[in-house]
Structures are given as C-alpha cells and as structure tokens.
Design a protein around this nucleic acid. Structure first.
Lengths: 121, 121
DNA sequence: TGAACATATGAATATATGTTCATATGATGA
DNA sequence: TCATCATATGAACATATATTCATATGTTCA
C-alpha cells in the first residue's frame, strides 16, 4: 500500500518513495526554513534593496535616504524598522538625527551572488 | 537653497548633501535593483524554500514534492512555475512524469549565507 | 519651558501573492 | 481511440504587505 505513505492532498499513486524518504531525512528543520524565508522576504522589496545598497556605501540618516530615493520619511522609517528587526541594520543617535548602517557581513555576499544570477543568461 | 535639491516628499531641511551625492553615484541602476528584489522575493516564501532545499538533495517529480511537503499538486506546480521563471529550476519530461532540478550554482551560496545570518545572535 | 525639527508609529488603503478548486493539457497503454 | 494518470493553468478567495496620512515621541536650542 504505497499510497498510504502520501499525503491525502496528493492524488498521485505512483511516486518515488525512496527519493522522498531520502530527501526527507536531510531537510533542515521547519523553523530554520521558515526563518530563511523570512530573511529573504526582507530582501524581496525594491525599497529595502535600495536602502541596503545605499548603506553599503555610507552610513546615512533617515532623511538622507528619503532624499536619495525620493520617498517620504515615513515610508523609509517603516522599512528601516523592518531591516532592524531582521538585524540587518543598526542605528545610532546623534542629537535629533538617527544614523543607520549595515549590521551584517553576509549581506554583501548574498547580494553579489544574487547579482551574478541576474547577470547570467 | 539646499532644500531645493531634495524631493518634495522629504520634509527635512538639514541633511547631508555630500553623502547623498556620493551614494547616488555608486548606486546600481534601477533595473538591476528591481531584478535583485524580484529574485529575493522568489526566495521569500516557505514553500519555495522547501522545494529548493529538497532539490539540493535530489531531482524530484511534482508529485514527490507534493508528498514530501504534504501539499496539493496544484500548489506545488504553481510554485515550480515561479521558480522556473526565475531560472532557478529546470525540468525534463519522462513520459507522464516531469522531473525538476536546480538550475543555478549561486543558490547554494545564497542559502548558506542566509543560514549563517540566522544562526547568529 | 516652548518652538522647531528628525524620526517613529498607528490606522487606513491599495496592491501583491499563495493556495484551492475546477478543469485543461499531454503522454501512456490497452 | 479511449481511459488513466501526471502535470499545468485560470479564476477566486484570503491574507500579507508597502505606502500614505496624521500624529506622537524625543532632542536641541533659545
């Protein structure tokens, strides 16, 4: 009764048990995969990509970034919060001004690999 | 009139012109940043992350993947299409069965860097 | 203390997106 | 050719999310 090993939602009756079992054994734990998706979701927005690229070059205040991207301060602030929660940026206050900078060494590698993928084909 | 150089949407009057200009010069072109966000958006979903992780281990057919993830065939097929459009997977037909496998060498690096980020802190 | 300014935040809105359901397509074998 | 099976696809629905607006917070300086 090979069929019994499959989820009810999959209507197929002939699949490759050995393959599925082998893969199942090496799959990372659910939580890790969820976190990974959450991380990439943060990168999956043009505004945040732009902010990160800007911060590759220099620490910037919220207003700098808003001016650079021609977006309003609130939108930038909201996105910086997302980046901060993902521990991708950090900030420091200097008087009224809040400066943001990158807080992760892996981002650059990830971006470079992504750009390599894009430039192919 | 420093204010005139800023977008109307940014209400700040005191920002760092030099920084903004310097950053503006090194920013990648708009289209490239858009493509990069689109790529990461593909990685920003748990189902697709799981599919990719599974394919790290072995080529699989649609039904295999559906069984592995306990999801229905249609959902998997839709997501495989997204992955294919992003040129992350390729497929080959063998009779009625369509086998999918990874079609990019950078994915593994990107995932590993992402996992490094997650495991920190 | 109060005005001015940079930033943060909550609510609302519009848009994007993942899954499901129903059904179409394409291949096999009798 | 017809039934069966694996996969693909379009429409619909529910949910997530980015931006805007209005306003709050926190700092500086007079």
């Amino acid at each position: 009764m090979a069929e019994k090993t499959y989820a009810d939602s999959c209507l197929c009756s002939i699949i490759h048990d050995d393959t599925v079992n082998k893969v199942r054994e090496v799959m990372p734990e659910e939580e890790k995969l969820y976190d990974l998706a959450e991380l990439f979701k943060v990168f999956g927005d043009t505004t945040r990509i732009k902010i990160i690229c800007a911060l590759f070059e220099s620490e910037m205040c919220v207003c700098d970034i808003a001016a650079l991207l021609s977006m309003n301060q609130s939108a930038i602030s909201h996105q910086l919060r997302v980046l901060k929660q993902a521990r991708l940026v950090k900030n420091r206050r200097d008087g009224k001004v809040m400066y943001y900078s990158l807080d992760d060494d892996h981002i650059k590698h990830i971006f470079d690999q992504g750009l390599l993928h894009i430039s192919e084909g």
